[in-house]
Amino acid sequence: MGPLMRERWRRARQGRGQQMFDKPDYALVGVIRIPELEKSPTRAIGRRVLWALFALFVCSLVVYFDRGGYSDGKGEPMTYLDSLYYSTVTLSTTGYGDITPVSESARLINILFVTPLRVLFLIVLIGTTLEVLTERSRQAIKIQNWRNRVRNHTVIVGYGTKGQTATAAIIADGVRPGEVVVVDDDQAALDAAAADGLVTVRGDATKSDVLRLAGMAHAAALVIAANRDDTAVMVTLTARELNPRAKIVAAIRESENTHLMRQSGANSVVVSSETAGRLLGIATITPSVVEVVEDLLSPEEGYAIAEREVDPSEVGGSPAHTRDLVLGVVRDGALHRVGDKQVEEIEIGDRLLYVRQGERG
Rank of each mutant, 00 (worst) to 15 (best):
E104D: 06
L190C: 08
D332T: 09
R147M: 12
W146E: 08
Y26K: 10
E104L: 15
S318I: 11
P77V: 07
V223R: 01
A44G: 05
V89I: 12
G160S: 06
S87A: 15
P41V: 07
I348W: 11
I170K: 02
A189I: 01
A214N: 05
F65P: 01
L279P: 03
T200R: 01
M5S: 13
A232F: 00
R351P: 00
L108D: 06
L242Q: 13
I99A: 07
E36P: 00
R149A: 11
G158F: 03
F57C: 13
N243W: 08
M261G: 09
G75I: 09
K23Q: 12
T231L: 03
A251R: 01
V269D: 00
E104P: 10
D72E: 05
G174V: 03
T154W: 09
P35H: 07
S264K: 05
S137I: 12
E36Q: 13
D196Y: 07
R308D: 00
L198P: 02
R228V: 03
A214R: 04
V315L: 04
L133S: 11
T128W: 14
T275W: 11
F113Q: 00
L122G: 12
P3S: 08
D196T: 04
Q357I: 13
W51I: 14
R278H: 12
L222E: 04
T154G: 04
V201Q: 03
E314V: 05
G68D: 06
V181K: 08
R11V: 03
M5T: 13
V293P: 06
R212K: 12
F54G: 14
K39W: 10
L327E: 08
R323D: 10
S288T: 07
R202P: 01
Y86Q: 10
V292L: 15
P244K: 09
S60T: 14
R245Y: 09
T286S: 07
R33K: 14
E38F: 14
I156D: 00
S105K: 14
E7V: 11
I248Y: 03
T165C: 01
E104R: 13
L50M: 12
G197T: 06
Y64V: 07
T286R: 15
R136H: 12
E301A: 15
V175H: 03
S87N: 05
V132Y: 15
L222W: 00
L122V: 13
A219R: 03
G160N: 06
K23E: 08
N110T: 07
L325T: 11
V271L: 05
A304K: 15
D185T: 08
Y354A: 01
A220P: 02
T42K: 14
Y64D: 02
L352R: 05
A251Y: 02
T206R: 12
V89E: 10
T322E: 06
N152R: 15
S87E: 04
E36L: 11
R147Y: 08
N110D: 10
A220G: 15
L297G: 06
A189C: 06
Q187W: 09
L211D: 01
T129Y: 15
L335Q: 10
I34T: 05
D196H: 09
G349Y: 09
I224Y: 00
Q19A: 13
G339F: 09
G69N: 04
I32V: 15
R228K: 13
S255E: 05
